[in-house]
Design a protein around this nucleic acid. Sequence first.
DNA 1: CGGCGCTTAGTAAACGTTTGAACATGTGGT
DNA 2: ACCACATGTTCAAACGTTTACTAAGCGCCG
Lengths: 358, 358
Amino acid sequence: MVRRASSDDGERPATIRDVAAHAGVSVATVSRILSGTYPSAPATRSKVMRAVRELDYVANANARGLAGASSRSVAIIVTSVVSPHYAHVAQGVQTQAALEGKLCIIGTTNGGPERELATVQLMRQEHAECVILVGNVVNDEAYRERMGEYARALAAAGSQLVLCGRPALGPDVPALVIEYDNTGGAYAITSHLLSAGHRRILFLGRRDGYTTPGARVAGYRNALADFHQPHDPGLEVDGKMERSEGYRMIRQRLESGPPDFTAVFAGNDLIAAGARQALREHGLRVPDDISLVGFDDLPSAADIDLTTVHVPHEELGRTAVRLALERRQDKSGMSEHVMLGTHIIVRDSVRPLRGAGQ
Amino acid sequence: MVRRASSDDGERPATIRDVAAHAGVSVATVSRILSGTYPSAPATRSKVMRAVRELDYVANANARGLAGASSRSVAIIVTSVVSPHYAHVAQGVQTQAALEGKLCIIGTTNGGPERELATVQLMRQEHAECVILVGNVVNDEAYRERMGEYARALAAAGSQLVLCGRPALGPDVPALVIEYDNTGGAYAITSHLLSAGHRRILFLGRRDGYTTPGARVAGYRNALADFHQPHDPGLEVDGKMERSEGYRMIRQRLESGPPDFTAVFAGNDLIAAGARQALREHGLRVPDDISLVGFDDLPSAADIDLTTVHVPHEELGRTAVRLALERRQDKSGMSEHVMLGTHIIVRDSVRPLRGAGQ
DNA sequence: CGGCGCTTAGTAAACGTTTGAACATGTGGT
DNA sequence: ACCACATGTTCAAACGTTTACTAAGCGCCG
């Protein structure tokens, strides 16, 4: 049970001064003992700890932050927290942060660059140890300039910008970049389809200018080229990375005639789920009639037996905070770039094409 | 582009003193103008704003918090951020927080009460305006006592405990409770099945002691009673609220003989998804052979055309912060209790039983 | 024309913690 | 006996804001 020394119970919370008085030592001693990082006599130590317990004292993070002790928080900025991709990265960030005794501040932007700016400013106010920006984005000049400013402003404030699954900036920009291999994964899974004899492979979810779909479509094209397949732009369908878009794209394609493809490479698992539904509604079964693969390896991919590319979402988040924190110690200053691997997960959504060999 | 007045560019970030000097006014003036809540001459105002812009000044949240200005953050504690239920509530919290200009601190516990305690302490250190605890929990004496302590400690620190989808405590405990109607929803959807002629309805996911499954099974029983159906405990299957559990429960049931039920009420949509898969693997199709309903109305429920109970996840989160913040103004002090409604969403996973009427 | 109220700006005292430097002790070497 | 030294503790000065109190300028009425 919580007891309180002062007469006015329930009033203002106990300060370090109250603890010091209660234990009969100075505030400096209390501070040092609580920080842990200092020698102290066992007797003093136990006196202080008892006072802390009896007064139910918790340190004031604001005062602590002000007085110089490095802030104990890590910030993550995503477009939305319900999107599985972001949720998993956020989970990784939160896990690693908790492991290091930090807590995690989260902001969402809903995609708007101005909201992103506002959120970065907030995190700057809050003196987060690092600010992790995650996700797909258009990679134009405006973007690079904006990120450069973020990076410099954060570095000046003793913080650190981390780009997670976003394109790197110049080497003179003080940012940490954690990517995963979109192109390699797309290459591998396209090869998987090609090896099974498929030649006409529909790519769903191209989106010019955006980094993630861009890298995936590049892997797709590379694989086709290595199998000496002609590049047919008609097989690349534009669309956003959402379930409803996958449904729409297949729907439109099938309404204009019978399928001119034997396999579908969906830009991510959500698109794959939507595409699968549209295919079924047209009487086409996966994988018997059409083969289907996705990208991301969300838990829901297992539900529909989808062969897909595994993305280490949580590890992405964990690595981001781990590297950011260890880099802060030796403030080497400049850019750093990490690329995490991806690999395909074979389930049951691809069938070899009968009479293969062309 | 960012310019800097001091010669040592990139060193320490600008303080309010720098801004005051740059604008030729006192720090008090700058503080007041930035707070907004004070009369000031337009000329002074624009001078200050220009200095802020030129120095790229952002206030130090720690100093601000220390000096008395109320903290600008809201805390949410969930077991995991990837679980869709929590993710949606978190999204609501984050959205409303952003709307009120606050930012959102998130902690995860992975279910452990000791981690929950540690996280609450962290939030107390951080002086969050309110601490929102969300989710299913065992409702025993230890729990009530623990929550009572949280509530009092937070109240003493000028914060506020909010319980979201958790059972209320005594009226003397200074906590805000936001619930949703589990029992009513379960009653409604069970009635839906009964009205379609189903009599032997399997309930999946009972879990004694836990609040959420408990309330749902209660609604199920109430509906059966109102339709004058005998209570058959053999139709209530124990299991956790996970997809794999849904799969397991159906699997085990069907391995021990042919189905002795015509409909399944899954404790939530995840269980429903797992159950559906197990049913299909046994050659039973939904809804033709077996009717299936769920609970939660996650986006994935639409994917499998599942009739389910809609839970206002996001609104839960939004309401939590809205009420918490407005209650802080008039510190009326004591408990408050809000119950949000649920309603059923009819899709295509239920068929009327042929030859109904028993 | 002097005092009064009103608006606007400045002064300085908090807020609760950390931390470098100083200060007591006791301990061992010479 | 004295000095150097290690150990454990205290003093006091930051850290960057906010805000009650105070002061200055100025128009207005008596």
